[in-house]
Design a protein around this nucleic acid. Structure first.
Lengths: 338, 338
DNA sequence: GCTGGCACTCTCCCTGGTCAAGTGCCAGTC
DNA sequence: GACTGGCACTTGACCAGGGAGAGTGCCAGC
């Protein structure tokens, strides 16, 4: 028995099942693919594929559907990379161009990704901990209020307004600003946070209450886990396509979307390349019929965060992977330009 | 026939249907409510209520369910206001306290609202056009870049970084800052925008290119429709409760959520008090089995934006209205304190 | 104006039977 | 040895028919 043909059969099964959403039998397989052999031969191949765990039968008299292992094999060895159409490339470009700030970039990419893939799209905001400080501003407002602004290398702007115990002099504010700038600009945020802590003692004791409250607030902002976990979700209307079985197909995904922690785990570590997690590989029992395609994005070679899509295991992997990859590249470029 | 009893019957039908999700017949109604009359009498009342359009039968041998008109009557005249439990009040308070900025307030309120009502919660960000300018900051960054920061009366901070054609002198930046401050602080954003336009000509011709690009950017920020339409959605997992009929109950809501424009229309105008829109009253045919409970929120008597929930028409109106009202009050207070 | 009783009308659910799809296996062929 | 054609077998999907149960409308009587 030819191994090559057996893999061809597996590929054909995956493709047909993805297209029709119905178990595929030996006859309909031959109708749609020129395999050059008879149904009986296909049946033998199928039986072998089933023994090896790549496909399964929902019930005896039904066709075969791929297992997670089957999809995995398809993704790893059988799928031919599908390039995006020029129209799609243009869509991404025109959609992302014209974003006014980082927030906007994230919002737009979530939309375009959802639209391209017809799935639920997830985009993590650029990580703070992986960025460096580009600029820091300390501005006295009315009364004892102070506005703190941090601009990171990815163009993200974080700001905070705090109320001090007493109104600082203009000179003190200027002094604090320049020394903080000195100490932190160009540093990664976690390091910058450490340096700030060391700085307090270099000020005159009288000024320390004010300095301390500014520095601790900045420090918090630098290491703010909440904003490091921020995530945008879009395309939830595409859940419709996940299947008709509400409880097993749609409900778990809705629940995952509500739980940012779960979502972050799903996106996974920003390892760099495209990652595909199929069914049980997601590590969540309830997501057994769900797959996640994700990719890190960043400027240059530095991964900033992750984005991706969540869809049924029965999805068009080549197209989805192409779209996720392309959007990740464009977003990275946008943030680098900024 | 006593009109009072007929309304009691309608109330009982609504309450039972909301609780059981099943058409309610004359017998089961008597099991659960002491109405002091026989089933036959109830049947007569029901027939009358049906004639008047308050209830209907899904089919001949089934019980009655309320129509939109029936729910409307219930909400307007029959529902007794249900106060929130102390535990619920505490939940809102502890959940909202500790929010660090406006963004955070919105995120948290969406969560708490979804949790309290078991529905899909929607919170509109505080409107820019209804706020006044509290503070404006113009900061020179490296090169010809300038950071513009606007702080509004609701505590919202908008910032933008722009690249000027040439590097401005520190003096010019200071000058621009103080004159913009002079012209806009305390003004509503749309008016502030007008004032800015008038300001350009008061500068020396040489400086105008720089002034113009700063002023137009600020102007755009003031009147930015996109940020005026920003919305946070939460509790989509609660769509599960909307009913089992995916296509008519859940899909339209998912689609509405994707379309911010639709969502904004649903929340409706910030008229002040609590608004309930039931079924066809939403103005969307596909949302015929959906109801929206919304309320404006703001500081003092000034409405800033709207928040609310989307749920099945078959919802617990008194509880939902109480929750929406309470959260709106708390959010308003949070923003006032800020 | 309320009540008890009765005939009537539906939907729901279970049963049984047919149909079509698809398989596994075996004997035969290149 | 690998492939093919044929055949018996299994099984879910679909449909019709027949109670059972819930609920109604109406009528005569109190």
């Amino acid at each position: 028995m030819s191994d090559d043909r057996r893999l061809d059969v597996l590929r054909a099964i995956v493709e047909d099942y993805v297209a029709t959403q119905e178990p595929v039998g030996s006859r309909s397989l031959l109708d749609r693919h020129q395999l050059g052999v008879s149904p009986a031969t296909i049946r033998n191949d199928m039986a072998a594929l089933e023994d090896e765990g790549y496909i399964m039968q929902p019930h005896t008299s039904a066709g075969r559907i791929p297992t997670d292992k089957g999809y995995r094999m398809f993704v790893d060895r059988l799928a031919t990379v599908k390039a995006l159409s020029p129209a799609e490339r243009r869509a991404i470009e025109t959609f992302l161009t014209g974003a006014v700030d980082v927030d906007d970039v994230v919002q737009r990419s979530v939309r375009v990704l959802a639209q391209l893939t017809n799935q639920v799209a997830i985009v993590q905001y650029p990580s703070l901990t992986r960025s460096t400080v580009r600029h820091i501003e300390v501005v006295a407002l009315e009364g004892a209020r102070v506005l703190l602004v941090v601009i990171t290398s990815s163009g993200r702007v974080e700001q905070r307004i705090i109320e001090l115990v007493e109104t600082p002099t203009d000179q003190l504010v200027g002094d604090i600003r320049s020394r903080i700038t000195q100490a932190t600009v160009g540093q990664r945020l976690p390091e910058a946070s450490l340096r700030l802590a060391d700085m307090i003692e270099t000020f005159a004791p009288n000024d320390r209450p004010i300095v301390t409250s500014i520095v601790t607030t900045l420090s918090q902002t630098f290491t703010n886990e909440r904003s490091d976990e921020r995530i945008a979700v879009g395309g939830t209307a595409n859940l419709v396509r996940f299947g008709s079985d509400f409880d097993t197909a749609i409900k778990p995904v809705l629940e995952a979307i509500e739980e940012q922690v779960v979502l972050l785990k799903l996106l996974g570590e920003a390892t760099g390349g495209l990652t595909v997690r199929i069914g049980s590989e997601t590590g969540h029992e309830s997501l057994s019929s769900t797959a996640v395609v994700s990719s890190a994005y960043g400027l240059d070679d530095q991964a900033l965060a992750t984005l991706g899509t969540v869809g049924p295991t029965r999805m068009d992997y080549p197209a989805t992977m192409a779209a996720v990859g392309a959007v990740a590249r464009y977003v990275g470029r946008m943030l680098a330009d900024n």
